[in-house]
Design a protein around this nucleic acid. Structure first.
Length: 261
DNA sequence: ATAGGCCTGGAC
DNA sequence: GTCCAGGCCTAT
């Protein structure tokens, strides 16, 4: 599920379920989780208290009263389930159990999500660019970054050092809003195009942030989800009617309108 | 720059 | 069976 809007929504779920709670036990339920969250680390968690939950890009930071941080990344399929009992949902991978009897459970069908524990004072996520939905993400910033890079704009926007929080869907949508061909080399984009691009990205993100619940409906995605180009290969562009095309860039699908982008 | 790996499930 | 998947890391 997770791109920036979904992670933002999930962080709210985690915040409501965990802040103020004392960790009683951490259960690692899939061995892939041990790569990031060692047995040694999990043993030090009971007794610590959750102080805050924040989002940065597609990461979540669970701050503990001890000053340590649990850093969470959902990758492709991760999500939180707040549970009131000991019953584990399908695909439960890690359970943070609290002293009051509730728990916060990482569910992740593909088991690619990671939770890692970091010491007091560790510098985290300093490689990330400005947040896609914040003031710091500007055309001037893009201009300064693109001056020293090359390659298609689609791949540049997926790079979290350039802008934090955009994934494959919203990069495609942002470029559609901006009328920009995803294959355009970054050095070919002038100031006007960059301003339009920043506006397009914020529009795509903010539209999704306004309806974060849409990915969480049981049984799949709701009818309210109407991407303009993502996953619409062959269907008419909602703006000009030309068929939406799919190409592969960096090994991943890019959708765009061949008529108006 | 590109491929491969991590994992599993769903669509075909 | 095959191919695909909203991410990121490492190796070539």
């Amino acid at each position: 599920m997770p791109e920036l809007p979904e992670v933002e929504y999930a962080a709210r779920v985690a915040r409501a379920a965990a802040v103020g709670q004392t960790i009683a036990r951490v259960r690692v339920l899939h061995r892939s989780q041990r790569r990031a969250l060692t047995l040694r680390a999990t043993r030090t968690l009971p007794g610590d208290v959750v102080a805050a939950v924040d989002r940065r890009g597609k990461y979540q930071l669970i701050s503990l009263v001890s000053g340590r941080t649990l850093l969470v990344h959902f990758k492709l399929n991760g999500d939180w389930v707040a549970a009131a009992s000991n019953a584990l949902p399908r695909h439960a991978r890690v359970a943070l159990e609290f002293s009051g009897g509730t728990s916060l459970i990482l569910v992740d069908s593909r088991a690619l999500a990671t939770i890692s524990l970091h010491a007091v004072g560790d510098v985290l996520l300093d490689h990330l660019g400005p947040e896609a939905n914040c003031m710091g993400f500007t055309a001037d910033w893009l201009a300064s970054v693109f001056r020293q890079r090359r390659g298609p704009v689609k791949l540049a926007l997926l790079d979290q050092r350039v802008v934090a929080g955009l994934g494959n869907i919203y990069v495609c949508e942002a470029l559609w809003y901006a009328h920009i061909d995803p294959r355009t080399p970054v050095n070919a984009l002038g100031g006007d195009a960059l301003r339009t691009l920043v506006r397009g990205a914020k529009r795509a993100i903010n539209k999704a942030l306004a309806h974060p619940e849409r990915y969480y409906l049981p049984g799949g995605v709701s009818d309210a989800v109407r991407f303009n180009v993502y996953d619409r290969e062959g269907r008419p562009c909602r703006r000009c009617g030309a068929p939406v095309r799919r190409i592969v860039q960096g090994g991943r699908s890019t959708y765009y309108c061949g008529g108006c982008q």
